[in-house]
């Protein structure tokens, strides 16, 4: 353990795992409750277009990717509501557009871009201090938003029509959640990459929803699973020749499968306790 902490890159990687694990598992809670899992995959693939644009234009690709990710998330919410089109359909279009733009721009590259490979498949070991600052800022802003509007977000996820009838500002609050989701996807891309990031914002919440009967427990379990996956994957990739992103997602998937196996026992235990 002390050997791992002796390296600067591992210290930064562990801090990144803490920040991104916390962020993703919190967002995952809402993603699963509102059933917008496909949106996560869509946002990450659309972000590829933004990342490629940044690389071609010589602008920070994390910045252009973030603009694409947040823009996609909010546009999906807006277009699906105004145009009365399902979110799945809208994100299906953005998904393909982002990927096509990314591929078109990447094909114009001359030479080898190691950053591109890292953004596609993640490279937590190359996290810089600047990246950590960006992740910390995203965590503070998103957690503040969720804490401030938690009861309204919960009401919107449970029964949007009722929330609207109560006079709550449903549209702006929900668009805010989508923006938070876009930002979360973008900062998490560094950890696991465009291809695998949706797992990070789906599996912790999905597993927790199987193991808890109330939202407080679900949020807590989601957090524990998100952090267990992030740290566990990092440790595995330190000792074995497995990329950290893949290791994190494999651990999360294993926890989900395990949750399915223990669910009947878990429910019986809860009933006996009652």
């Amino acid at each position: 353990m002390s050997e791992i902490l002796a390296y600067g890159f591992m210290q930064r990687a562990l801090l990144a795992a803490l920040l991104v694990g916390t962020l993703c598992s919190t967002i995952s809670f809402f993603v699963v409750l509102k059933r917008i899992s496909f949106l996560g995959a869509g946002i990450s693939h659309t972000a590829l277009g933004g990342i490629a644009l940044g690389l071609v234009a010589g602008v920070d690709p994390v910045l252009t990717g973030s603009i694409f990710a947040v823009g996609t998330a909010m546009s999906t919410g807006y277009i699906s509501r105004v145009g009365k089109i399902s979110e799945d359909t809208v994100i299906g279009i953005f998904y393909a557009f982002g990927m096509a733009l990314g591929i078109a721009l990447i094909s114009t590259f001359k030479g080898y871009y190691p950053e591109l490979f890292a953004l596609l498949f993640g490279n937590i070991l190359s996290v810089s201090v600047k990246d950590l600052l960006y992740m910390s800022l995203a965590l503070v802003v998103i957690l503040a938003y969720i804490i401030l509007f938690f009861k309204e977000l919960l009401a919107i996820c449970f029964d949007e029509e009722m929330a609207e009838a109560a006079g709550l500002p449903v549209k702006p609050i929900f668009l805010g959640l989508l923006a938070a989701m876009g930002l979360t996807v973008m900062v998490s891309i560094q950890l696991v990459g465009v291809v695998l990031v949706s797992a990070l914002i789906v599996i912790p919440g999905a597993t927790a929803s199987r193991l808890s009967r109330n939202y407080r427990g679900m949020l807590a379990i989601s957090l524990v699973i998100g952090l267990a996956g992030s740290f566990g994957g990092l440790f595995i990739s330190y000792y074995y020749p497995v990329p950290p992103g893949a290791a994190i997602v494999l651990i999360l998937a294993a926890i989900f499968v395990l949750s399915m196996a223990v669910k009947p026992w878990f429910e019986k235990h809860l009933r006996d306790k009652e």
Partner: peptide, 29 residues
């Protein structure tokens, strides 16, 4: 609203569901 407007598998207690009815623009923040 009609029964299909809410998420059936949502992890709320009965009291939590009732509490949702207390929300209004005046209770935001």
């Amino acid at each position: 609203p009609q029964r299909q407007s809410f998420e059936r598998r949502f992890p709320l207690s009965a009291a939590d569901v009732v509490a949702v009815g207390l929300l209004s623009p005046a209770t935001v923040l």
